[in-house]
């Protein structure tokens, strides 16, 4: 009897270990997913930090069309548009595009822009040397700003990609913003009234 009971208890313990392991695996999927997407670039996320631009050879023989689209998340009141809707670039060439934002609300709002590239595989080859999306962007009520984004397309971009779209979505992150002073926005222009 005791032998049987021990046998059962050992088996139960092993199975409980599997259960706990799989519960942990569910959470491990989160970093695994990020790492996997980072390496393969398949979910269209671009890198979160600035790339260095150093003596990249410009491939004049190829011309890539890069399109920019913007949207704001539900409940985010900002105006947000790309000043440059579409640009033709040579791989390796450094380009700057600009985005306009305005906070029409009566309170200060901190925004975070999240990029998404389609087709997703192009994300790995979009190198940004400067982007407003690297940081949270605060604007006080009524403020507007032009936010630049500087990038080059990696000449290694697969041959079959001639066209890709970069979408930025603005999220209202005021509730969880780092302690940012609205005046600290480096892209902020003057108040519309005083700027005339």
């Amino acid at each position: 009897m005791t032998q049987k009971n021990n046998q059962n208890r050992n088996m139960v313990l092993k199975l409980v270990v599997i259960v706990i392991g799989m519960f942990g695996f569910g959470f491990a999927l989160v970093p695994l997913y990020d790492v996997f997407c980072d390496i393969t670039g398949i979910n269209g996320k671009t890198r979160n930090s600035a790339a260095a631009y150093e003596a990249v050879e410009i491939d004049e023989s190829r011309e890539i069309t890069v399109e920019f689209i913007t949207r704001t998340n539900t409940g985010m009141p900002w105006e947000f548009r790309a000043e440059t809707k579409r640009v033709k670039v040579h791989p390796g060439e450094l380009n700057t595009v600009s985005f306009y934002v305005r906070n029409p609300a009566s309170g200060n709002i901190v925004a975070q822009a999240i990029p998404s590239v389609s087709p997703g595989l192009a994300a790995l080859y979009l190198n940004k040397t400067e982007c407003f999306c690297f940081n949270q962007q605060p604007l006080s009520a009524g403020q507007e700003a032009y936010m630049p984004m500087q990038f080059y397309v990696d000449p290694q971009l697969p041959e079959d990609i001639h066209y890709f779209t970069v979408q930025y979505t603005l999220y209202d992150v005021t509730a969880r913003a780092d302690d940012l002073d609205t005046q600290a926005n480096p892209f902020m222009t003057q108040q519309p009234e005083s700027g005339k």
Partner: peptide, 14 residues
């Protein structure tokens, strides 16, 4: 069941 129900538990917890 023991392989995937814990993953569901993780998903609802998240």
């Amino acid at each position: 069941l023991i392989a995937v129900m814990p993953v569901l538990a993780g998903a609802v917890t998240m």
